[in-house]
Simulated assay, not measured.
Amino acid sequence: MHRRKRESDSTCSHPDVLSTAIGKRDAETNAHNYRVAYDAARVGEALGLSSPQLQALLAGSFLHDVGKIGIPDAIQHKPTPLSEAEFCVVCNNVALGIEITRRSSWLAAAREMIEFHHEKFDGSGYLRGLRGEATPLAARAVAVFGGIARQLDGEVCAAGERGVERIVHRLIDSACPAGADKGDRFIVAPTGRHAV
């Protein structure tokens, strides 16, 4: 009994420890991760995911950008467009995230979302250029949640509810075209802060 509690405490603390590291390194990324995890939890619960599925979705959505702690500030926060070389450095955040979480068996399901959340349905993403459903569904979902959080944090805050709906549909369509019409039931956004 005590052994199981210690194992549970130690595995559940992994995201908390990584969150602290992310927060110390980059408060903006840390806040983004909390928003993505919040949206993932709401959708996961609405879909009736099992406890292990929900736990994996939360860990993966929260840690999807953990590799950014290894990207230099001058590149990560550059206010002008990145050069091709700088973009390659940013793309390395995926490999860094995989490396950071590699030794934790509890984070194995999260690694899938870390590794594949920059893939695009049309094959234009990175790290591997996967097409269509070759990208795991959970990683596609994290890409949508992350895109929504970024959009709502940035230029579209004043777009209003219809603007948010268009953004949500565009993001869902880019991750899973067949699911675009299913996004309506998750557009709640009464405060304009969260669309999912």
Rank of each mutant, 00 (worst) to 15 (best):
E112M: 03
L137C: 10
D65C: 04
Q55Y: 04
V66C: 00
G154W: 10
G123D: 08
D153K: 08
L171G: 02
G147P: 12
L47T: 05
L171H: 05
G60K: 01
T135H: 07
L58D: 01
Q53G: 14
A40D: 03
N30V: 00
L96N: 11
G163F: 12
A139K: 05
S83I: 05
A139G: 04
A41W: 08
R42V: 02
R166F: 05
R166A: 15
G48P: 10
A40N: 04
A143D: 09
E115I: 00
E45N: 12
A134M: 15
E165M: 12
A143N: 15
A31G: 03
M113R: 03
C157I: 10
A37G: 05
G132S: 12
A108N: 13
G70F: 07
G154V: 09
F116H: 15
A110N: 01
I75R: 12
A56G: 04
L171R: 13
E165S: 08
Y38W: 10
E86V: 12
R111A: 01
D39N: 03
L96T: 05
A31K: 05
A134T: 11
A149Q: 10
G67W: 04
H169L: 11
L54V: 04
I98H: 00
P72R: 13
D65T: 09
G147T: 07
L130N: 09
L57W: 02
I100C: 00
R170S: 11
D65I: 02
E86A: 10
P72S: 13
R42N: 07
A110K: 01
A143K: 15
L171I: 03
S61G: 15
R35I: 03
V156M: 15
A85P: 06
P136R: 05
L171Y: 07
V66A: 01
I75E: 06
L137W: 10
R103M: 06
S104C: 04
D73N: 14
A159S: 14
F145G: 00
A40T: 03
I167T: 13
A158D: 11
A109R: 00
H77G: 08
G132H: 08
V66K: 01
R170K: 08
Y34I: 10
E155C: 10
C157N: 09
H118W: 04
L54F: 01
R102C: 03
G44L: 06
E119S: 07
S174Y: 05
E28R: 06
T80S: 14
R166N: 10
S51W: 02
R103L: 09
Q53S: 11
A110F: 02
L107M: 14
V36L: 00
Y126W: 13
D173R: 15
